[in-house]
Amino acid sequence: MPDVSYGTSPRQSGNESSAENRCTDAVCINASRIYDSCGSKDCLSNLTVYFTPCNQTVINNASSVKICKASVITAELSVEPVAFHRGYYAVDVTFFFDISLEAYSCGCSIPSKVNGLAVYGKRAVLYGSEASTRSFSSDECVMCAEKNTSCTYSAFLPKATVQISEPMALSAKLVKGCVPPLPCVPIPECVITYFGDDFACSGTASVNATIGIFTITQLERNVQIMIPSYDFCIPRKECKPTSDDPCEVFSKVEFPNESFFPPNARAEEKEKYNFECSCNG
């Protein structure tokens, strides 16, 4: 590895041509290639919110609710081939949301904060190509095939991943009546641990929440590809130690001018909201 001083960049000698500077080496790497992907914008309306017995008591005595925040706890994915469409796979995703609410009871101006679980599932059909080989690695646990069974198709399935933005908490409403049954999908143990208790199966009121999400679902496989290689990623600067003096750290913070002097609208915003005033008289 060449010895490069921190804070400097490699210098080229004057007799080196620009063509030589652009020369690269071709290297083979093992990478995860995305074969297909899709994005979606979903408004999830009237999601039933499930509560622990303690929080369900608060909902039973509430006269109204207000949604405060929604966040993703976890998601479960499964992939299965689509019949009669070689290379295509159905990706089933189940999201588990934490819905934060404020519950208002009759004659009380201070709301009670409660959290509940909302579950939503969706399916996407994507192209994931085909493969008929199994891969083994020295840094992975040994996986043995079951005896007296045909070759498991799951060994050849592509890998599914999903990305989701922070949900937008839109609305929530209180519904008087029996609590709907829990979803048919099994609730992961980590979700039960997250809320600290099992969920109530009965009650005199329930909550329906509406949230908005943005997701990207994709199918990928490990492939060997050839890429150009320029050089190793050598650090160009030194990691300087930070000071323990809080005043010294504060002295490096720039003065927040925008907090004292709010900026004017940008030019593109002025054009976007350039309404004409048609005044008569």
Results as ranks from 00 to 15, higher is better:
107 G>K: 07
92 D>C: 12
59 I>G: 04
132 S>M: 09
103 A>H: 06
67 I>D: 01
98 D>N: 15
91 V>C: 10
141 C>I: 10
45 S>P: 00
108 C>F: 07
115 N>I: 03
80 E>Q: 13
112 S>R: 08
141 C>Q: 13
94 T>A: 03
119 V>W: 07
127 Y>W: 11
97 F>M: 04
53 P>A: 09
110 I>T: 15
59 I>R: 02
64 S>E: 06
50 Y>P: 01
47 L>Y: 04
74 T>M: 10
83 A>N: 09
73 I>L: 07
86 R>I: 09
109 S>Y: 08
107 G>T: 05
87 G>I: 04
58 V>F: 06
44 L>H: 03
101 L>T: 01
95 F>H: 13
63 S>G: 14
94 T>Q: 03
122 K>Q: 11
104 Y>I: 05
130 E>G: 00
85 H>I: 05
53 P>R: 05
44 L>A: 02
139 D>P: 00
99 I>V: 12
48 T>V: 10
40 S>C: 05
71 S>V: 03
81 P>Y: 09
86 R>C: 08
141 C>K: 12
101 L>G: 01
120 Y>N: 13
138 S>L: 13
55 N>Y: 11
41 K>P: 00
114 V>M: 10
127 Y>V: 06
101 L>S: 03
50 Y>E: 02
121 G>C: 12
116 G>D: 04
107 G>W: 07
113 K>E: 14
72 V>H: 07
75 A>E: 09
90 A>D: 13
61 N>M: 06
108 C>D: 14
138 S>R: 10
41 K>D: 08
56 Q>G: 02
43 C>W: 02
46 N>W: 04
123 R>N: 11
39 G>N: 08
75 A>H: 06
87 G>W: 05
54 C>G: 01
128 G>C: 10
133 T>C: 11
77 L>E: 11
84 F>Q: 14
93 V>Y: 01
84 F>Y: 13
100 S>D: 13
91 V>S: 04
86 R>D: 11
127 Y>N: 14
82 V>A: 07
76 E>H: 06
70 A>K: 01
121 G>F: 00
66 K>R: 12
141 C>N: 14
90 A>Y: 04
112 S>T: 15
113 K>Q: 15
93 V>Q: 11
40 S>R: 08
103 A>D: 06
59 I>S: 01
138 S>N: 14
115 N>C: 14
73 I>W: 01
135 S>F: 09
45 S>A: 12
123 R>Y: 02
85 H>F: 05
132 S>C: 12
130 E>L: 14
52 T>I: 03
66 K>A: 08
45 S>D: 06
123 R>S: 15
90 A>N: 15
54 C>A: 11
140 E>K: 15
135 S>L: 14
97 F>P: 01
40 S>Y: 01
40 S>A: 13
72 V>K: 07
79 V>H: 07
